[in-house]
Design a protein around this nucleic acid. Structure first.
Lengths: 212, 212
DNA sequence: TCTAAATTTAAACAATTGTTTAAAACATTT
DNA sequence: AAATGTTTTAAACAATTGTTTAAATTTAGA
């Protein structure tokens, strides 16, 4: 077993990850992956049996890595709920800046493989066990936080962070914002999103009037 | 020119729309579309020249319809900014409830066809011309509204509405919310999202402290 | 009704694509 | 160095897929 084995195997995975994320399962051709990896076409099957098997490995790894990061922050027992929100938004946005194509890839995967995910990821059922979630419910019980379905908070949290990246091509088109400025806006959001989220939890919201 | 012409042409477009939205361009096979439409395989090429041409027609129509709806509301000169927000959220969510697959389809399309869209849609450059946008800027000028980049507001607006639909398979997986309850949550958001958005515009946001 | 045009069909074509094969190149062990 | 196992390669295979063809069917107009 020479040292090269791990090298080529890793080269293929890296290339596959890139091509799959870029073009999806059907759009990615085995020859594209081989070319990107700089290897012979047959090596893909030699190391990973089939395109499908390779894809499923990449898919599961990507999803797992992603949720591991998410869950790690939300499950710390030392930090307050507010600190969790701050930390979550900060690291989440920073991660997405480095991997802006990952969320759309994951969302497409989950959509196209719902049944597979339902079977494999009992992991997901833990969400109500997260420390974050318990802190949230405790504050609701104490009446300190507005009594809304936690899913709403989750959707707003994820939506305000993820959506700009998922929709970035559209946003850049519509607003005429160039790539460079876009990242700056994302940096601004690291501070702003937590503030908005906390407002949702605490402020008693009434209708606003404005005479224009 | 018999009456059937429009019928079959329409049958193909309807089927293509469904299959393309479900599986994307590469994932959708011409034979799938023909089967779904209940027509002979060759008719697709007879009416639409090629798979690519058919896809581009569907893609452009979908995007155009979508933005037409959006722009119509945001460009009304009679309604106040607040009413625009209310109306926008309401009709947007109601539309997405009926076509939950459209946003992910559009986002994928724009991502994969950035150059095409840049050329074809000078339409998009109008966004700063929308009545909504002028009202927004006027309130900022008057100091009635916080001075943030309008893109932030746009991202939050779109994110809080669209993201739950784009991510619905993931959300259902993670939160264990069934289909029926999901639509109920979306109905709740018709009232809540506007309130949250207005808070973002008006409330002076400070840090929140909570002793846990 | 007869003719010409338009539409539909079954079959075939040609290119692409995932996969396999069998030999070659390389590394490791004895 | 010979033998053995591992990795890489070029070529071919078989299935799929977008597209075309040419004949059959239907429709519309004179």
């Amino acid at each position: 077993m020479p040292d090269k084995e791990l090298q080529t195997e890793e080269k293929i995975k890296l290339a596959a990850r890139k091509i799959f994320q870029e073009k999806g399962f059907e759009g990615a051709k085995t020859r594209d992956i081989a070319k990107e990896a700089g290897i012979n076409l047959a090596l893909m099957n030699y190391y990973f049996r089939s395109k499908k098997a390779l894809f499923e490995m990449i898919m599961m790894e990507t999803v797992q890595e992603f949720f591991q990061m998410v869950f790690q922050i939300l499950n710390k027992s030392e930090t307050s709920l507010m600190d969790k929100i701050d930390g979550f938004v900060e690291t989440y946005i920073e991660t997405l800046k480095k991997n802006p194509e990952v969320p759309l890839f994951i969302l497409s995967c989950v959509k196209s493989n719902q049944v597979e995910f339902q079977k494999k990821f009992s992991m997901f059922q833990m969400i109500s066990e997260l420390h974050f979630f318990k802190q949230f419910q405790e504050l609701v019980k104490q009446g300190k936080v507005k009594n809304i379905h936690p899913a709403h908070f989750l959707m707003n949290l994820a939506g305000m962070i993820v959506f700009p990246f998922v929709a970035s091509p559209m946003i850049k088109l519509v607003t005429q914002i160039p790539e460079s400025e876009f990242d700056l806006l994302m940096d601004q959001r690291k501070k702003m999103v937590p503030l908005w989220l906390k407002d949702m939890l605490f402020k008693t919201t009434l209708d606003h009037q404005t005479n224009e």
